[in-house]
Amino acid sequence: MSAAAEAPIVEVRGVSRRFEKQLDFVARLARRAGLPVREEVVHAVDGVDLTIQRGEVVGLVGESGCGKSTLGRMVAGILPPSEGTILRQGRDLRSLGGSEARLAKLRTQMIFQDPYASLNPRRKVAEIVGEAPLYHGLVRRADLADYVDEQLRRAGLDPALKGRYPHQFSGGQRQRIGIARALAVQPDMLVCDEAVAALDVSIQAQILNLFMKLRRELDLTYLFISHDLGVVEHLSDRVVIMYLGRVVEAAPSEEVFARPNHPYTQALLAEVPRIENRKRHFAGVQGEIPSPLNPPGGCHFHPRCPHALARCKVERPVLREIAPGHRSACHLNEAT
């Protein structure tokens, strides 16, 4: 047990996830006739390594289509990887059997972007929050009402409202219901996928404060997925930046924001609107985010990179440590 306690809470090793579009009947016929028809494959996540220590808040940042949500879902155990392994406290969940695997999976819970879409509209709040702990035997039926009240109170909801349905709540309150439901099965880790993106600023602040309070009270570990660098900077101990399925940079928060190394990170940080910056001149990163169906070879960022070398077009850069705890995948770090 002591060995397991020392192992990182999550270790992602060389994980990839592909989504394939099956050929339809016409395409299969065409292929049999010798035409060059291929399945379309999206490499949503492409060879990612990621370690999360107990108690850490790791911010996972990237633009649409970079694979951050897919990675989050694999960490939460609701999507199997195509390749690689994910270790939970040193153990591969796939090697565990029946009930042991089920309980281990409960230890990671997920908070979704759209709380309304993730709550059953025909169930009362008490049922939404109470169902899973009852099913998994975490609470006896006699104690369920008190248990649900406690979960709601902890998430900042009045237990008197537990007889209501999700549509009777505002967006911020619905997100609190989602949080209460996730915490009801006593996880030690939360994967938050754009959990505050759909909320108004004043409500967003309430939910972010709640996340920080819960972290202190329950000793939670967070994988916090967001496209909003301001939110991630505020919350995270460490930041991981993805671009088109790959991690391009990972470092402690202060380090990333003070000394961004990868040209993509630098561009991203330069474009974040900040309330401190007045009447600035916007420039914009050149070019578009390429299609993940057909990503550029070598370093995925090279067509938009102002410093691209010939080598960047052909050779995939590996994630290397450039300072203690600071890793970046860029060929420029080797050029002298």
Binding site: S170, A205, G230, H234
Partner: peptide, 24 residues
């Protein structure tokens, strides 16, 4: 004042955000 306090900013990393109580 409340709205500005709600914006996560580099000046107050990790500190609790000033939230506006209640809702619209």
């Amino acid at each position: 004042v409340g709205l500005i306090g709600s914006v996560p900013s580099r000046n107050r990393r990790g500190a609790a955000l000033n939230q506006i109580p209640g809702m619209t």
